[in-house]
Design a protein around this nucleic acid. Structure first.
Lengths: 132, 132
DNA sequence: GCGCAATGCTTGCTCGACTAAGCAGACTCG
DNA sequence: CGAGTCTGCTTAGTCGAGCAAGCATTGCGC
C-alpha cells in the first residue's frame, strides 16, 4: 500500500530522493537488487543519483519502474518528481499491455514465475548486447 | 472535447507531430501564436521540431501546455508521446498480475514474446509430467 | 519597385537525464 | 593473510530535450 495517496499537491520536488530511498530500505533491497527487478531499466548507479538528489527529475518511465518494484503509487511519484499528471476522469490507456495472453501467467507457481522472470531478463540482456 | 477520442490502440510515437500539427492548423494558429499562448513555455522553433518529428518525446510539461492551448486531452498526448500515464482509479496494482510484474513484458518484441510463450508452455508441461 | 512584418524552419548550443565502468570499503570463507 | 563478493557511490561520456537566434520565403501597404 502506498503510504501516501493524498496526491493533490504533493510534497514538491525536494523529497523524491529521500522518499525513494526510504522505500527501498523499507523493503531491504540493495541498489543492485532494484536494478535487477526493474529488468535493468534502472541501473544501480543511476538510482543512487536519484536518491542523492543528483538527478531531480527522472523520466516518467523510470518512475514507473520504481513504482512497480516498490509498490508505490505511480502518479504520486510523478508529482513528487515535478511532473504534471492528467486530470483523472477516464483516460484510455489501452494498447500498452501489448497483446499478451495474460491468463497464461495466472496459473504459474511462485518459483515458476521467478524462472520466467529470469528468462525475460535473459531475453532482454541478449537484445542489449546485440543492438545499440 | 478533443477532436479525436479514439485513442484505444494509440498510434504511439510516430503520429504525435502530425497530430499536433493538424490540431494547430485546425485552430488557425501560427507557431509563434502558440508560443505566445503558452506563455513562452513552448517556443516556436521547438514546436516546429515536434511537428516535424525531430523531437519525438517532449516532456509532460510541454505537452500539458500544448493540451491547454489546443484544448486536447493531456493524458492522450502523454500516451502519444510514449509516456506512461498513471492508472488513476487506484494504485499501481494494475501492473502486477498474480504477483507478476507485467511491465516486464511490455518492452519485448514480437518474436521474444513468442519465445516467452513457448517457455511458459514448457513450464506447464514440466509440471504436468511430474504429478498433480 | 522597396521595406517590413509574419510565416515556417534550421542550426549551434546548453543542460540535464541516463549509461557504463569503475572505485573504495565491509563482509565472508578458505 | 588473501580472494571473492556485495555494498553504496562516483565519474566520464553519450544522447536528446529545449532554447536563442538566425535563415528564406511569402504577402502586405507604400
Amino acid at each position: 500500500m502506498p503510504p501516501n495517496l493524498d496526491s493533490s499537491r504533493a510534497a514538491s520536488s525536494q523529497s523524491l530522493g529521500a522518499y525513494l530511498k526510504s522505500a527501498r530500505s523499507a523493503l531491504g533491497l540493495s541498489l543492485r537488487a532494484v536494478e535487477e527487478r526493474t529488468g535493468k531499466a534502472v541501473t544501480n548507479g543511476y538510482l543512487s543519483q536519484i536518491e542523492s538528489g543528483t538527478v531531480t527529475q527522472p523520466s516518467p518511465n523510470m518512475l514507473y519502474h520504481l513504482a512497480q518494484v516498490y509498490d508505490l503509487d505511480y502518479g504520486d511519484l510523478l508529482l513528487r518528481a515535478g511532473h504534471r499528471i492528467p486530470h483523472s476522469d477516464d483516460t484510455a490507456q489501452r494498447g500498452i499491455l501489448a497483446g499478451f495472453p495474460m491468463n497464461a501467467l495466472e496459473e504459474l507457481t511462485e518459483s515458476e514465475r521467478r524462472e520466467l522472470l529470469e528468462y525475460i531478463a535473459f531475453l532482454r540482456s541478449r537484445r542489449a548486447s546485440s543492438s545499440r
